[in-house]
């Protein structure tokens, strides 16, 4: 037994025989997207399907020009970044108050906010649409931002973080009469890097990939996010697979690049949803 384990460590691990097919199966759809985005239309109308005959980079310029992907990507970025910033600020403020300040009604309010975590979006979607219409925000970027300015999940996450900090950190400052905001800014903020980056990443991911709400609230092309843009692009180019796959790749590229650069933080952030 021990003899074989010594031998295994010198040779390539047999686990590669399991992991290579596994990785291929998981990556195949995305690899096929990339290959198709470089094919000609004729390449995609052969059976059985095969590799592109030549590299047709023009699919990307066609997709870029035919769907306003630049506009859609900018819209997605504006909406996602606005949601991230606002969540970081508003969730921090609320979470700090819920964790540290005894104020009237704290328990009830906190439970009510948490309870909304259980409410599926589809339940609030129709009245939310009516609210947006009454606010005159239909078909605008603020309509995508307003309902996601703050999330009960973010408040919960940061409150747990504050509760894990020793209260002694703040006691001296409280006795000195420092304001709550000053304590939050100068004592706690420097410690909040990990939970804030987690919240930022999860908010960005959710907001960037959100579908149902932007689908129903915005219908003009110039205020679509890239996900809705891609869905409408599919409707217009259903038979032109190469251009459609080029558009799909364009729509996924920004997040993929961010993921590659910050894989460690992405993985750690997503893992916290499981540890809760």
């Amino acid at each position: 037994m021990s003899e074989s384990s010594v031998r295994v460590s010198r040779r390539p691990s047999p686990w590669h025989l399991v992991l290579i097919p596994l990785a291929l199966v998981m990556a195949a759809p995305l690899i096929w997207m990339v290959l198709t985005s470089l094919s000609s239309v004729a390449d995609t109308q052969r059976f059985p399907p095969g590799l592109p005959s030549a590299l047709h980079w023009s699919n990307f310029s066609k997709a870029w020009n035919q769907g306003p992907f630049d506009r859609w990507l900018v819209n997605s970025a504006v909406v996602s970044i606005a949601c991230v910033i606002s969540n970081l600020v508003l969730c921090s403020l609320a979470a700090y108050a819920f964790a540290r300040i005894r104020f009237f009604g704290r328990g009830v309010v906190f439970v009510l906010l948490l309870a909304t975590l259980m409410v599926p979006f589809q339940v609030v979607m129709i009245p939310s649409l009516v609210i947006m219409r009454n606010l005159g925000l239909i078909d605008s970027l603020p309509a995508l931002i307003a309902p996601n300015l703050v999330t009960p999940f973010g408040i919960y996450l940061l409150r747990q973080f504050f509760l894990s900090l020793p209260i002694e950190l703040e006691e001296a400052a409280v006795l000195d009469g420092a304001s709550r905001l000053r304590i939050l800014r100068s004592i706690l903020l420097p410690l909040m890097g990990p939970p804030l980056s987690t919240l930022a990443i999860l908010t960005f991911l959710t907001s960037w990939n959100d579908f149902l709400w932007p689908l129903i609230v915005n219908t003009s092309s110039d205020v679509m996010t890239v996900q809705i843009g891609l869905a409408s692009f599919q409707g217009a180019h259903f038979t032109n697979w190469p251009v459609l796959m080029a558009g799909t790749l364009i729509s996924q590229l920004p997040l993929m690049v961010l993921f590659l650069v910050g894989q460690r933080w992405f993985v750690a952030s997503l893992a916290t949803t499981g540890i809760k």
Binding site: I20, A23, M245, L260, Q263, F266
Partner: peptide, 22 residues
């Protein structure tokens, strides 16, 4: 290997649908 498994996590539902359509 981990990258290959994790990338679908950040792939949007729309992109997933479009790719599987083909």
């Amino acid at each position: 290997y981990r990258l290959a498994v994790f990338v679908p996590v950040i792939t949007s539902t729309v992109a997933t649908g479009v790719i599987f359509n083909f």
